[in-house]
Simulated assay, not measured.
Amino acid sequence: MHIHPFDFSEAHYRVYAAVREAAHPEVLLDIAVLKHLDQTRAQSDVLERFLVEQGGQAVGVMEFATPYYDPKPGALEVRYHLRPEAHSLEDAVWGFLMERLAPHSPKELLAQVREDWPEYRYLLAQGFAEVERRWESVLDLHGFDPAPFERPLPPEMALRPLSELPWQEEGFQRALYALETSLLQDVPSTEPINLWPFEVWQERTLNDPNLLPEGYFLALQGEQMVGVTMLFKSSRPQTLRTGLTGVLRSHRRRGLALALKLRALEFARRYGARYIRTANHQINRPMLAINEALGFIKEPATVLLRLNPVRQKPG
């Protein structure tokens, strides 16, 4: 086994994607998104990534990093993927990761893996414990009939896409940021959600290479933004993925969340997508209930795991 630092070149990104696809062909890697995540990290973030070779062939990738979406003092997120024929290297890969991250003295390690992946079982054996799980769900628009769900909007409300609004003006962006951060604080989650500063949200969200302004819908009462749902492009064929969906507390129980979802599904169909993918935390029952009613089908859960305290293996 030979281990090489990831050099963030186009060639290494392609190798990373090939290994990921071989390890988990059911979860495609979008290289443009991975680059965007790498390029929009804070300067203070830790990020060390490596390629694993055996017999002259790349058979694995591994990394540890400051959690991107929810950074916490003293926490590092670990990740590794191995081609099926290279699973005998798991102990060696894990030992290398533990040795390399030790100088950072992390208080806890985090990992996110699907429950049907071999990494899940391996990390549990290393002492990781489950914190929470969320489900990816898929809706096939070919079999979807919106008619049973359609209701008139309250007369004072309107649904408009971001593309028809002055979304490139900072004043509008700050109002949108205020809406989204307010909604995120209400998302049911086992772990508290740490909110990004405005400038970080601005760079990471509005410069996302998969941003689809015409598929990013706002519920408006006059000029006040009171709800949102958003679709993003996907590397999967004929697929769009859903981001945050939510409505301010003051405007709930008026059918706005469902109306926003239906408007997004109508757009997706006209856009030429067949599949819509979304993800929900297991305790977010209101949104899970809406998605289940619409016909979204759950896939195996993605599980957040934590190792705390971090102990070095003897020897």
Rank of each mutant, 00 (worst) to 15 (best):
Y216K: 02
L240R: 06
R254Y: 00
G246P: 10
A268T: 07
F267I: 06
N284K: 01
E266T: 13
D208G: 00
E214V: 00
Q238S: 03
G222K: 07
S234C: 07
I276M: 14
Q202Y: 01
L240K: 04
Q238W: 11
L258Y: 04
H251Q: 14
V226W: 13
R263N: 04
K261N: 08
N207P: 00
K298F: 00
R252K: 07
R204N: 05
R241W: 00
R285H: 09
L212R: 11
G295Y: 02
Y275K: 02
R252W: 06
K261S: 11
L218A: 11
E203D: 07
P209D: 07
H281L: 09
Q221C: 10
T205I: 12
H251W: 14
Q202V: 00
L262N: 06
Q221E: 15
L262D: 03
G227C: 01
T242C: 12
I276S: 11
R254W: 05
R277L: 13
L240M: 14
V200Q: 15
L288K: 02
L248T: 14
Q238P: 00
S250K: 08
V247M: 01
R204F: 02
P213G: 06
N280T: 11
R274P: 09
H251I: 03
T302P: 00
T278V: 02
A279T: 09
E214M: 09
I297Q: 15
V200D: 05
L231D: 11
L220V: 02
L256V: 07
E266Q: 15
N210Q: 10
G243R: 08
L260Y: 08
I276D: 07
V228Q: 12
A257L: 11
I283P: 08
T302A: 09
F217R: 01
F198L: 13
T302R: 12
E266C: 10
I297L: 08
T205F: 14
F198C: 11
R254P: 01
I297S: 09
P213T: 12
I290P: 05
T245W: 08
